[in-house]
């Protein structure tokens, strides 16, 4: 008898009868500790890497610069190999223009590469404005627009493809600026937005083992 004076048999009689399913063997499940979802924290972006190169005004030196640009792009920027070769051509065209137009023999041109890994690559070429065919930023802008128009059809000319097609098509931003000291500065920038333009993670991470499917 309990404190309320009912017997066990009376209590059992008062309970509704519920059909119980036959017991089923269940594998024991280890208790999982409660885990709070990790807060979404963006990985800290690396500071841009800036490289300045001073090059004598001779085309001879540009082949070494081309090799450097390919290796830098492949290894440090997050851009794919295809883009490494594209930047090689962009830098070659810009440097050769600076040699042909902007900096006199015996002078220099300045090449700056600014890589923000997995985000963008910027190329800046600055001449001294002492060349035989010196161009202002306004001249260059007009020339660029003229050449772009020329290229709309089937263009069979000998010259004029470098700036509108190779530089223009393979970059997102193109700016011509007059330099206070009299030269011309050409700035181009390419953003790394598309997955197919990125170096594959398997290639960039030597500890990432890819197993055959």
């Amino acid at each position: 008898m309990d404190e309320q004076g009912t017997t066990q048999s009376q209590a059992q009689a008062a309970q509704p009868v519920v059909a119980q399913p036959a017991p089923v063997a269940v594998a024991p499940v280890a208790a999982q500790p409660a885990v709070a979802p990790a807060p979404v924290v963006e990985a800290p972006k690396e500071a841009p890497t800036e490289i300045d190169i001073r090059i004598p005004t001779q085309a001879y030196f540009i082949s070494g610069i081309r090799d450097f640009v390919v290796n830098l792009t492949k290894n440090m920027t997050g851009f794919s190999e295809r883009w490494a070769y594209r930047f090689q051509a962009v830098v070659d065209e810009l440097c050769n223009n600076a040699i042909e137009y902007g900096s006199a023999p015996g002078q220099f041109l300045k090449l700056t590469l600014i890589s923000t890994k997995d985000t963008s690559l910027e190329v800046i070429v600055e001449d001294t404005g002492t060349g035989p065919k010196k161009m202002t930023a306004a001249d260059m802008k007009n020339l660029y627009e003229e050449r772009k128009q020329m290229m709309t059809g089937q263009y069979l000319g000998l010259r004029g493809r470098g700036l509108p097609k190779i530089v223009g098509e393979w970059t997102d931003e193109l700016v011509f600026e007059d330099v206070e000291t009299g030269g011309l500065r050409v700035k181009v920038k390419k953003y790394l937005r598309k997955e197919e333009d990125k170096v594959s993670s398997a290639k960039s991470d030597p500890t990432h083992l890819v197993l055959p499917g």
Binding site: L158, R159, G160, R161, K165
Partner: peptide, 16 residues
């Protein structure tokens, strides 16, 4: 391994 825009210009001229 590499060709610049000037060499592409020559190639176009030879084609023509």
């Amino acid at each position: 391994e590499y060709m610049n825009s000037k060499s592409i210009g020559y190639l176009t001229d030879w084609y023509s």
